[in-house]
Design a protein around this nucleic acid. Structure first.
Lengths: 214, 214
DNA sequence: TAGATTGTTAATCGATTAACAATC
DNA sequence: TAGATTGTTAATCGATTAACAATC
């Protein structure tokens, strides 16, 4: 049993930012950083940073700060980035294409092991060095690639079917870009990126700025 | 002064989902929906749905439910989707390209009025029916297009500069895809989509499932 | 009227922030 | 030792959920 039992979801959501901030400081040659410095780089408050890190155990030195190198390693372990995660991307339209080529996806920590699409025009083409597989082979691609993470960038109407198939095939984490609420078993982790909603939320605030003529 | 003063941010974040759920029900021919039905379609609890909607005023009928048509209109107004918002996209790489073609962006509610990139190879090409403009023209593209919303899909190192330029040119809402924390004035609304972080968060949970060998 | 369902209040829960004792 | 800064506790704040009176 390690120290990070019961890390709150909001804290988990900030850990990647801390890791990135540390990488930035490290690249600048900074060896030790206070919570104040590190928090500023990550765009949060120092109290929040210390509280978040405390869930992973005690990794700073009082009166001194945090060792950039040591804390980076600690966060890398906490985030499960010590071994590469295998990812399948389903739906190779404009967005899926972009994701397959995205450096954050195909980088050090993740390996794209399969691309799947339903369109015969797309199947068989090579995207980001991989041949796009047909929809019928979805379960096999997941199982044979031993993928644990799936990215869904299909049209909304097939997203739930695709999701069900992949969960049955062994995926435990899903990143959904399709504008549709998906149902997954409790053991499967679901994250949603809803681009349309993001714009609409901006529109909400925009409206309140421009229509001050009340 | 309308009814939606002080709508909590978490509620605002769910309004687009409600609007989409209503559209789905409407397409099925459903004229009236209870909070239970609508909440199920949106993937939230009925209590939360009613509480969220109550911030916009009283729009249901006790003992009956919500009129799908009427509530849709109400949400459309609340979200500021009665007039089209003008959007500029900066950084026309794989992702920017996908976003320019994304139906949720170029659809009924939003108009892409400008595409900007720094790469001479990309400048001058036509993407989604628009000619990509050079970086030097960024401020002019924003001002002349009267854009209020900006999408940043540039590399991280130029994101803050791009952001500053656009804020100065009149943008009031920013959707940032660059993996970098941006600073904006309080009056500017900033939303962040961090694709790399999303995968790392999935990896965090994935690790805890696969490494139960403690 | 009786049954159903909203809108709202109160209770619970979790997250953030502030303050400070521990300690380098 | 004196100054600095963590790790943690307590206080604040906000969001969710449950319960129910209002009312169609």
């Amino acid at each position: 049993m390690t120290g990070e039992r019961g890390v709150p979801p909001t804290t988990v959501g900030r850990l990647p930012r801390y890791l990135r901030a540390l990488a930035g400081l490290g690249a600048q040659g900074v060896a030790t950083a206070s919570s104040r410095t590190l928090a500023a780089a990550a765009g949060v408050g120092p109290a929040q940073l210390r509280k978040d890190l405390s869930f992973l155990g005690s990794h700073g030195t009082r009166g001194v700060g945090y060792d950039v190198e040591h804390l980076s390693r600690r966060l890398t372990v906490a985030l499960g980035l010590t071994s590469r995660r295998r990812v399948v991307i389903v739906g190779i339209g404009h967005l899926g294409h972009a994701l397959a080529n995205y450096s954050g996806f195909a980088g050090r920590d993740f390996t794209v092991v399969g691309l799947v699409d339903a369109d015969p025009e797309v199947v068989g083409t090579t995207v980001a060095g991989l041949e796009v597989q047909p929809a019928e082979r979805l379960a096999r691609v997941v199982a044979e690639g031993a993928a644990t993470i799936a990215v869904i960038s299909t049209p909304a109407d097939v997203a739930q079917d695709v999701c069900d198939t992949m969960v049955a095939a062994g995926v435990t984490g899903i990143l959904n870009f399709a504008p549709r609420a998906l149902r997954v078993p409790p053991a499967v982790d679901l994250r949603v990126v809803d681009l349309g909603s993001e714009l609409q939320i901006l529109a909400f605030h925009d409206r309140r700025k421009t229509e001050l003529s009340s």
